[in-house]
Design a protein around this nucleic acid. Structure first.
Lengths: 117, 117
DNA sequence: TCCTTGAATAGATGTTTGTCTAAACAGACT
DNA sequence: AGTCTGTTTAGACAAACATCTATTCAAGGA
């Protein structure tokens, strides 16, 4: 549906070793994608939806925003690698990439360094 | 040193239940605070520093940025509740609030809902 | 083929944000 | 007091961003 960014290769937990500049830039992109209430709710709606996927029509109804605005936010999430979209007939369905969330989660707490994917 | 925001009360994991608007706004503030490479490195430098704290002088040296800019980023992190600063004599020392990171981490992965603080 | 509906793109606009310089504030030491 | 060093505040400015309207693209059904 659109360009796939590589899944985060980053990092040992924040509190273990200082982040390199490159790692920080990489991570910041992901956090920036989540740094908006609408995008967080989109992510949550998709992730918690039955079957692990939701169509744009479902998502649009949940907000008091125009279609293009929702579409813009979905694009940001897509380009950050957090979700993917797939057209099936009339509708486009989105689902999250749980590994990306898991890696992000692991960076935040002290614990084992991330093993290579 | 400055106003303390309440530690995030938020939430069940993203993928369990759809985030409410209020929860999303709350969480987005935290993610926004981390959505910058400089702030992520600051956070990591502080968290990984010996003794769990670092003074501003250490932090400033690690970047090619002016003092006021670093101070600005520290303020953003402070006001988000991720760190606290304390003046001891000449220097100001910062340390992270690990609980906030832990809660944030827990929101990202499927698992148990957060128990009240 | 044309029309209808779902979704994305293009372009415009007001707001937020990261950075800087200049100035103020806080301690410590003469 | 006066001065030095470390840190924060104030104000300015360009770049990034969230939102909108108008338009285009995609797939189905008449």
């Amino acid at each position: 549906m659109s360009k796939q960014l590589p899944v985060v290769q980053c990092c040992s937990p924040l509190a273990r070793d200082p982040l390199s500049e490159v790692q920080a830039v990489e991570l910041a992109k992901l956090f920036k994608a989540m740094a908006d209430p609408v995008r967080l709710r989109l992510l949550s709606l998709i992730a918690s939806h039955a079957g692990g996927e939701a169509c744009v029509c479902d998502l649009t109804d949940a907000f008091d925003l125009t279609g293009p605005t929702i579409s813009h936010h979905l694009k940001v999430l897509r380009e950050s690698g957090l979700i993917t979209g797939e057209r099936r007939g009339t509708w486009v369905y989105y689902r999250v990439h749980p590994e990306v969330l898991a890696r992000l989660s692991a960076v935040l707490v002290p614990g084992d360094a991330i093993v290579p994917a």
